[in-house]
């Protein structure tokens, strides 16, 4: 496996690889999300308890899953960078943090918009909501640290260390918040549980979820490329690439 992975430690090879897979992610996102959204908004049945407000589910749940998933991915990249000194892993830490923050924000906003009609308030200090909010703070910390350095390489490494510290802390925070919640609030709002989902709800959900994953992949490719070229400004291949891409525009 190492032999197969080895070439991708070279920034140029990785750059061209992301260039190759980027359009696939783009088209997959476009198709899956357009089908998923139309299905979710028009054709999926209304929930027998929650009515049409259940349609928020199709963006809330995928983005909530992805908000945690992206953090895990970011921490894995940070670990790779710290242990094996992969320079490109830093680049992916810097690339992933803003994406994760956006999905966390979406999960929070849609959660609030779902909570208002269902629970009667925009916000409750519920364990899940609180830990999602703290996750957003952790993301913002990583982004702020990443932006504070002038040197991109250092920025990526520092952000990676913070992401790793955060990933050790996340279970503790989650546990403590859950514990705090049960202690302070007796019987809270009834959770939305996980009812066995009907197939006609499951399929649009799957389309939306896969579409969101595709979008994450697509945006990650773009951001990763930005990070790679800004870290390798002086390399001939970056210079050739930049000049190549800018000339046709100037000719117009």
């Amino acid at each position: 496996m190492w032999k197969w992975l080895h070439p991708y430690a070279n920034p140029e090879v990785s750059y061209h690889f992301t260039d190759k897979i980027k359009p696939w992610f783009g088209w997959a996102t476009f198709l899956l999300l357009s089908i998923g959204f139309v299905w979710a908004l028009l054709f999926a049945p209304a929930d027998y308890q929650q009515g049409e407000s259940f349609r928020i589910f199709y963006i809330h749940v995928p983005s909530a899953i992805l908000s945690a998933g992206i953090y895990a991915g970011m921490a894995t990249a940070a670990l790779c960078s710290l242990v094996w000194q992969f320079k490109l892993a830093d680049a992916s830490v810097s690339a992933l943090a803003p994406i994760g923050a956006i999905f966390t924000a979406i999960a929070l906003v849609t959660g609030a918009a779902w909570g208002k009609p269902m629970w009667g308030t925009w916000w409750v200090w519920d364990a899940r909501l609180t830990s999602e909010l703290i996750l957003l703070f952790l993301y913002l910390g990583v982004i702020a640290l990443n932006n504070a350095f002038d040197d991109k390489q250092m920025a990526g490494k520092a952000a990676g260390i913070l992401a790793l510290v955060g990933v050790i802390n996340l279970p503790i925070i989650k546990y403590s918040v859950e514990w705090w919640n049960t202690l302070h609030q007796g019987a809270t709002v009834s959770k939305l549980g996980a009812p066995a989902m009907a197939a006609e709800m499951y399929w649009p959900f799957l389309f939306c979820f896969l579409g969101f994953i595709g979008l994450v992949g697509y945006v990650t490719c773009i951001r990763f490329q930005t990070e790679v070229i800004s870290r390798n400004k002086m390399r001939p291949w970056v210079r050739a690439l930049v000049c190549d891409n800018n000339q046709p525009e100037e000719a117009k």
Partner: peptide, 19 residues
């Protein structure tokens, strides 16, 4: 920046200590 980074990580201590 330091406070932005560190404060979220302080949350568990705060919760358990006050409780």
């Amino acid at each position: 920046l330091l406070s932005l980074i560190v404060l979220p990580l302080y949350i568990p201590v705060l919760i358990f200590a006050t409780s």
